[in-house]
Simulated scan of single mutants.
Amino acid sequence: MTTTGNQFTSLRNSDVGVWTGRGCCLRLLQVLSTCIAFSLVASMGTWRGDIGNFSLFIWCFCFAMTLIIIIVEWFGLQRRFPFFWYNVPITFACYFALLCLSASITYTTTFVQFLPLSPNRDRAIAAITFSCIACVLYGMEVAWIWDWYELGSNPCYVHTIPGLLKVLETLVACVIFAFISNTNLYLHQPALVWCVVVYSICFIQAAVAILLKLFKLKYTLPIPFPIFQVGLTLLSVIFYSSAMVLWPLYQFDEKLGGQAQRSSDGSCRDDLTYYVCAWDQRLAVAILTAINLLAYMADLVYWARQVFVKD
Protein backbone atom coordinates (compact mmCIF):
# COMPACT_ATOMS: atom_id res chain seq x y z
CA MET A 1 0.00 0.00 0.00
CA THR A 2 1.23 3.49 -0.84
CA THR A 3 1.41 6.18 1.78
CA THR A 4 -0.59 8.75 -0.18
CA GLY A 5 -3.16 6.75 -2.08
CA ASN A 6 -4.27 4.56 0.80
CA GLN A 7 -3.99 6.73 3.87
CA PHE A 8 -7.55 5.85 4.72
CA THR A 9 -6.31 2.36 5.60
CA SER A 10 -4.12 3.52 8.45
CA LEU A 11 -4.69 0.15 10.01
CA ARG A 12 -1.55 -1.93 10.35
CA ASN A 13 -1.14 -3.55 6.96
CA SER A 14 -0.53 -7.07 8.20
CA ASP A 15 -3.78 -6.96 10.17
CA VAL A 16 -6.15 -5.46 7.61
CA GLY A 17 -7.66 -8.83 6.79
CA VAL A 18 -8.33 -9.59 10.46
CA TRP A 19 -9.99 -6.21 10.97
CA THR A 20 -12.06 -6.60 7.80
CA GLY A 21 -13.44 -9.90 9.08
CA ARG A 22 -14.22 -8.52 12.52
CA GLY A 23 -15.70 -5.34 11.11
CA CYS A 24 -17.94 -7.25 8.73
CA CYS A 25 -19.24 -9.51 11.52
CA LEU A 26 -19.86 -6.54 13.80
CA ARG A 27 -21.76 -4.60 11.16
CA LEU A 28 -23.87 -7.59 10.18
CA LEU A 29 -24.87 -7.96 13.83
CA GLN A 30 -25.60 -4.22 13.99
CA VAL A 31 -27.83 -4.45 10.92
CA LEU A 32 -29.63 -7.45 12.39
CA SER A 33 -30.18 -5.80 15.80
CA THR A 34 -31.51 -2.52 14.44
CA CYS A 35 -33.67 -4.33 11.88
CA ILE A 36 -35.30 -6.44 14.59
CA ALA A 37 -35.78 -3.36 16.83
CA PHE A 38 -37.62 -1.28 14.24
CA SER A 39 -39.57 -4.28 12.93
CA LEU A 40 -40.92 -5.01 16.41
CA VAL A 41 -41.98 -1.39 16.96
CA ALA A 42 -43.45 -1.07 13.46
CA SER A 43 -45.58 -4.16 14.07
CA MET A 44 -47.26 -2.40 17.02
CA GLY A 45 -49.33 -0.17 14.75
CA THR A 46 -49.76 3.56 14.23
CA TRP A 47 -50.64 4.30 17.89
CA ARG A 48 -47.07 3.86 19.09
CA GLY A 49 -46.78 7.61 19.82
CA ASP A 50 -44.24 10.34 19.12
CA ILE A 51 -41.45 8.69 21.08
CA GLY A 52 -42.14 5.40 19.34
CA ASN A 53 -41.91 7.11 15.96
CA PHE A 54 -38.71 8.91 16.97
CA SER A 55 -37.10 5.66 18.12
CA LEU A 56 -38.33 3.93 14.98
CA PHE A 57 -36.61 6.60 12.85
CA ILE A 58 -33.34 6.16 14.77
CA TRP A 59 -33.27 2.39 14.28
CA CYS A 60 -34.22 2.67 10.60
CA PHE A 61 -31.53 5.30 10.00
CA CYS A 62 -28.84 3.27 11.78
CA PHE A 63 -29.88 0.16 9.84
CA ALA A 64 -29.80 1.94 6.45
CA MET A 65 -26.47 3.72 6.95
CA THR A 66 -24.74 0.63 8.36
CA LEU A 67 -25.97 -1.37 5.38
CA ILE A 68 -24.56 1.29 3.02
CA ILE A 69 -21.17 1.11 4.79
CA ILE A 70 -21.18 -2.68 4.43
CA ILE A 71 -21.94 -2.43 0.71
CA VAL A 72 -19.26 0.22 0.13
CA GLU A 73 -16.57 -1.79 1.89
CA TRP A 74 -17.71 -5.16 0.50
CA PHE A 75 -17.29 -3.93 -3.08
CA GLY A 76 -14.13 -1.95 -2.29
CA LEU A 77 -15.73 1.38 -3.18
CA GLN A 78 -13.93 3.11 -0.31
CA ARG A 79 -10.84 3.22 -2.55
CA ARG A 80 -12.60 5.95 -4.52
CA PHE A 81 -12.49 8.14 -1.40
CA PRO A 82 -8.93 7.61 -0.11
CA PHE A 83 -8.66 10.90 1.76
CA PHE A 84 -11.72 10.81 3.98
CA TRP A 85 -13.32 7.36 4.08
CA TYR A 86 -11.21 6.25 7.05
CA ASN A 87 -13.14 8.86 9.10
CA VAL A 88 -16.59 7.77 7.96
CA PRO A 89 -17.18 4.38 9.69
CA ILE A 90 -15.99 5.45 13.13
CA THR A 91 -17.87 8.77 12.92
CA PHE A 92 -21.12 6.98 12.13
CA ALA A 93 -20.40 4.35 14.78
CA CYS A 94 -20.02 7.08 17.43
CA TYR A 95 -23.29 8.67 16.39
CA PHE A 96 -25.16 5.38 16.17
CA ALA A 97 -23.98 4.20 19.60
CA LEU A 98 -25.29 7.40 21.18
CA LEU A 99 -28.48 7.41 19.12
CA CYS A 100 -29.35 3.82 20.04
CA LEU A 101 -28.60 4.59 23.69
CA SER A 102 -30.86 7.67 23.67
CA ALA A 103 -33.62 5.73 21.88
CA SER A 104 -33.42 2.93 24.45
CA ILE A 105 -33.64 5.34 27.38
CA THR A 106 -36.41 7.60 26.08
CA TYR A 107 -38.48 4.74 24.71
CA THR A 108 -38.33 2.98 28.07
CA THR A 109 -38.99 5.95 30.35
CA THR A 110 -41.69 7.72 28.34
CA PHE A 111 -43.49 4.90 26.56
CA VAL A 112 -42.92 1.32 27.63
CA GLN A 113 -43.53 1.85 31.35
CA PHE A 114 -47.08 3.04 30.59
CA LEU A 115 -48.02 0.07 28.43
CA PRO A 116 -50.36 -2.51 30.01
CA LEU A 117 -49.35 -6.16 30.06
CA SER A 118 -49.93 -7.29 26.49
CA PRO A 119 -48.11 -8.65 23.42
CA ASN A 120 -47.33 -5.06 22.44
CA ARG A 121 -45.50 -4.51 25.72
CA ASP A 122 -43.49 -7.68 25.08
CA ARG A 123 -42.59 -6.41 21.60
CA ALA A 124 -41.55 -3.04 23.02
CA ILE A 125 -39.32 -4.66 25.66
CA ALA A 126 -37.75 -6.89 23.01
CA ALA A 127 -37.13 -3.82 20.80
CA ILE A 128 -35.36 -2.08 23.70
CA THR A 129 -33.23 -5.17 24.26
CA PHE A 130 -32.08 -5.24 20.65
CA SER A 131 -31.53 -1.48 20.71
CA CYS A 132 -29.21 -1.92 23.70
CA ILE A 133 -27.41 -4.75 21.88
CA ALA A 134 -26.95 -2.46 18.85
CA CYS A 135 -25.58 0.26 21.13
CA VAL A 136 -23.01 -2.15 22.57
CA LEU A 137 -22.06 -3.38 19.08
CA TYR A 138 -21.50 0.16 17.82
CA GLY A 139 -19.49 0.92 20.94
CA MET A 140 -17.35 -2.16 20.29
CA GLU A 141 -16.72 -0.96 16.75
CA VAL A 142 -15.59 2.45 18.02
CA ALA A 143 -13.26 0.85 20.58
CA TRP A 144 -11.75 -1.59 18.08
CA ILE A 145 -11.23 0.98 15.33
CA TRP A 146 -9.71 3.30 17.92
CA ASP A 147 -7.21 0.58 18.81
CA TRP A 148 -6.44 -0.52 15.23
CA TYR A 149 -5.83 2.87 13.62
CA GLU A 150 -2.33 4.27 13.86
CA LEU A 151 -3.34 7.55 15.42
CA GLY A 152 0.06 9.22 15.32
CA SER A 153 0.34 9.69 11.56
CA ASN A 154 -3.28 9.92 10.43
CA PRO A 155 -5.76 10.30 13.31
CA CYS A 156 -9.47 10.00 12.81
CA TYR A 157 -11.35 13.23 13.47
CA VAL A 158 -13.57 11.75 16.19
CA HIS A 159 -10.44 10.59 18.03
CA THR A 160 -9.76 14.25 18.80
CA ILE A 161 -11.32 16.47 21.45
CA PRO A 162 -13.00 18.85 18.95
CA GLY A 163 -14.27 15.88 16.97
CA LEU A 164 -15.92 14.33 20.01
CA LEU A 165 -17.38 17.70 21.00
CA LYS A 166 -18.83 18.17 17.51
CA VAL A 167 -20.44 14.73 17.70
CA LEU A 168 -21.98 15.70 21.05
CA GLU A 169 -23.15 19.11 19.82
CA THR A 170 -24.86 17.81 16.71
CA LEU A 171 -26.41 14.83 18.49
CA VAL A 172 -27.86 16.97 21.28
CA ALA A 173 -29.22 19.36 18.63
CA CYS A 174 -30.95 16.44 16.88
CA VAL A 175 -32.64 15.43 20.14
CA ILE A 176 -33.72 19.05 20.66
CA PHE A 177 -35.25 19.02 17.17
CA ALA A 178 -37.22 15.92 18.10
CA PHE A 179 -38.73 17.68 21.13
CA ILE A 180 -39.50 20.95 19.34
CA SER A 181 -41.28 19.12 16.53
CA ASN A 182 -44.33 20.16 18.56
CA THR A 183 -44.66 23.67 17.11
CA ASN A 184 -47.18 24.63 19.78
CA LEU A 185 -44.25 25.05 22.15
CA TYR A 186 -42.89 28.15 20.46
CA LEU A 187 -44.89 29.58 17.54
CA HIS A 188 -46.91 31.82 19.84
CA GLN A 189 -43.84 33.74 21.03
CA PRO A 190 -41.15 35.41 18.82
CA ALA A 191 -38.48 34.96 21.51
CA LEU A 192 -39.04 31.20 21.45
CA VAL A 193 -38.97 31.18 17.65
CA TRP A 194 -35.56 32.84 17.93
CA CYS A 195 -34.42 29.92 20.15
CA VAL A 196 -35.44 27.46 17.42
CA VAL A 197 -33.49 29.55 14.89
CA VAL A 198 -30.48 29.37 17.22
CA TYR A 199 -30.65 25.58 17.42
CA SER A 200 -30.87 25.34 13.63
CA ILE A 201 -28.03 27.77 12.87
CA CYS A 202 -25.65 26.24 15.40
CA PHE A 203 -26.43 22.72 14.18
CA ILE A 204 -25.61 23.75 10.61
CA GLN A 205 -22.37 25.37 11.75
CA ALA A 206 -21.27 22.25 13.63
CA ALA A 207 -22.25 20.01 10.69
CA VAL A 208 -20.24 22.20 8.30
CA ALA A 209 -17.18 21.93 10.56
CA ILE A 210 -17.50 18.14 10.61
CA LEU A 211 -17.88 17.92 6.83
CA LEU A 212 -14.87 20.19 6.26
CA LYS A 213 -12.77 17.82 8.34
CA LEU A 214 -14.21 14.58 6.97
CA PHE A 215 -13.84 15.61 3.33
CA LYS A 216 -10.45 17.30 3.85
CA LEU A 217 -11.82 20.66 2.70
CA LYS A 218 -10.46 22.78 5.53
CA TYR A 219 -7.50 23.85 3.39
CA THR A 220 -9.87 25.47 0.88
CA LEU A 221 -10.89 28.11 3.43
CA PRO A 222 -9.52 31.64 2.96
CA ILE A 223 -8.46 31.72 6.63
CA PRO A 224 -6.73 29.12 8.86
CA PHE A 225 -9.13 26.45 10.10
CA PRO A 226 -8.50 27.14 13.84
CA ILE A 227 -9.44 30.82 13.38
CA PHE A 228 -12.50 29.75 11.39
CA GLN A 229 -13.49 27.46 14.24
CA VAL A 230 -12.97 30.14 16.88
CA GLY A 231 -15.31 32.47 15.00
CA LEU A 232 -18.04 29.88 14.46
CA THR A 233 -17.83 28.50 17.99
CA LEU A 234 -17.88 31.96 19.57
CA LEU A 235 -20.99 32.77 17.55
CA SER A 236 -22.59 29.49 18.73
CA VAL A 237 -21.77 30.29 22.37
CA ILE A 238 -23.39 33.73 22.05
CA PHE A 239 -26.46 32.29 20.34
CA TYR A 240 -26.87 29.44 22.83
CA SER A 241 -26.42 31.86 25.75
CA SER A 242 -29.40 33.85 24.46
CA ALA A 243 -31.45 30.66 24.10
CA MET A 244 -30.42 29.56 27.59
CA VAL A 245 -31.98 32.76 28.94
CA LEU A 246 -35.02 33.11 26.67
CA TRP A 247 -36.27 29.51 26.53
CA PRO A 248 -36.72 28.95 30.31
CA LEU A 249 -37.88 32.54 30.81
CA TYR A 250 -40.74 32.37 28.33
CA GLN A 251 -41.61 28.74 29.02
CA PHE A 252 -41.71 28.76 32.83
CA ASP A 253 -42.35 32.36 33.88
CA GLU A 254 -46.09 32.81 34.36
CA LYS A 255 -45.82 36.59 33.88
CA LEU A 256 -44.61 35.94 30.32
CA GLY A 257 -47.22 33.30 29.57
CA GLY A 258 -45.23 30.27 30.75
CA GLN A 259 -46.16 27.47 33.14
CA ALA A 260 -44.08 27.26 36.28
CA GLN A 261 -45.63 24.03 37.57
CA ARG A 262 -46.00 20.74 35.74
CA SER A 263 -49.45 20.28 37.26
CA SER A 264 -50.68 23.38 35.44
CA ASP A 265 -50.21 21.63 32.08
CA GLY A 266 -53.32 19.69 31.22
CA SER A 267 -51.43 17.33 28.91
CA CYS A 268 -49.37 16.09 31.88
CA ARG A 269 -52.26 15.13 34.16
CA ASP A 270 -52.92 11.75 32.57
CA ASP A 271 -50.16 9.30 33.46
CA LEU A 272 -51.31 6.79 30.89
CA THR A 273 -50.11 8.68 27.83
CA TYR A 274 -47.88 7.44 25.04
CA TYR A 275 -46.08 10.70 24.48
CA VAL A 276 -44.00 13.26 26.36
CA CYS A 277 -46.34 16.00 27.59
CA ALA A 278 -45.70 19.64 26.64
CA TRP A 279 -44.24 20.72 30.00
CA ASP A 280 -41.78 17.82 29.98
CA GLN A 281 -40.78 18.74 26.43
CA ARG A 282 -40.09 22.32 27.53
CA LEU A 283 -37.97 21.09 30.44
CA ALA A 284 -36.07 18.62 28.26
CA VAL A 285 -35.20 21.35 25.74
CA ALA A 286 -34.01 23.64 28.55
CA ILE A 287 -31.71 20.91 29.93
CA LEU A 288 -30.38 20.00 26.49
CA THR A 289 -29.75 23.68 25.76
CA ALA A 290 -27.60 23.90 28.89
CA ILE A 291 -25.69 20.75 27.89
CA ASN A 292 -24.96 22.07 24.42
CA LEU A 293 -23.94 25.48 25.76
CA LEU A 294 -21.35 23.78 27.97
CA ALA A 295 -20.14 21.71 24.99
CA TYR A 296 -19.73 24.82 22.83
CA MET A 297 -17.91 26.63 25.65
CA ALA A 298 -15.48 23.72 25.98
CA ASP A 299 -15.08 23.73 22.20
CA LEU A 300 -14.34 27.47 22.25
CA VAL A 301 -11.72 27.07 24.97
CA TYR A 302 -9.97 24.36 22.95
CA TRP A 303 -9.82 26.39 19.72
CA ALA A 304 -8.91 29.60 21.53
CA ARG A 305 -5.91 27.82 23.01
CA GLN A 306 -4.94 26.58 19.55
CA VAL A 307 -5.03 30.14 18.17
CA PHE A 308 -3.84 32.34 21.00
CA VAL A 309 -1.69 30.13 23.22
CA LYS A 310 1.66 29.33 21.66
CA ASP A 311 3.69 26.48 23.12
Rank of each mutant, 00 (worst) to 15 (best):
L28T: 07
Q30Y: 04
L32G: 00
S33P: 03
C35I: 14
I36H: 03
A37L: 02
A37K: 03
S39G: 13
V41L: 15
M44R: 11
M44Q: 12
M44A: 12
G45R: 11
T46G: 11
W47A: 15
R48W: 15
R48V: 15
I51V: 15
G52K: 12
N53H: 15
F54E: 11
I58D: 03
W59I: 13
C60N: 10
M65E: 15
T66H: 04
L67E: 10
I70W: 05
I71L: 09
L77M: 04
R79Y: 11
W85R: 00
P89T: 06
P89F: 07
T91W: 01
T91N: 03
A93S: 10
C94M: 06
A97I: 01
L98Y: 10
S104V: 04
S104N: 04
I105C: 03
I105K: 01
Y107K: 07
T108R: 06
T109H: 08
F114R: 13
L115D: 05
P116G: 06
L117W: 15
S118N: 03
D122P: 04
D122H: 06
A124E: 03
A127M: 02
T129S: 02
V136N: 00
V136D: 00
L137G: 01
Y138S: 08
Y138M: 08
G139F: 00
M140P: 11
A143F: 09
W144S: 11
W146K: 05
Y149N: 04
E150V: 06
L151V: 10
L151W: 13
P155T: 04
P155L: 01
P155Q: 05
C156R: 08
V158F: 00
I161M: 12
I161S: 05
P162C: 12
V167G: 07
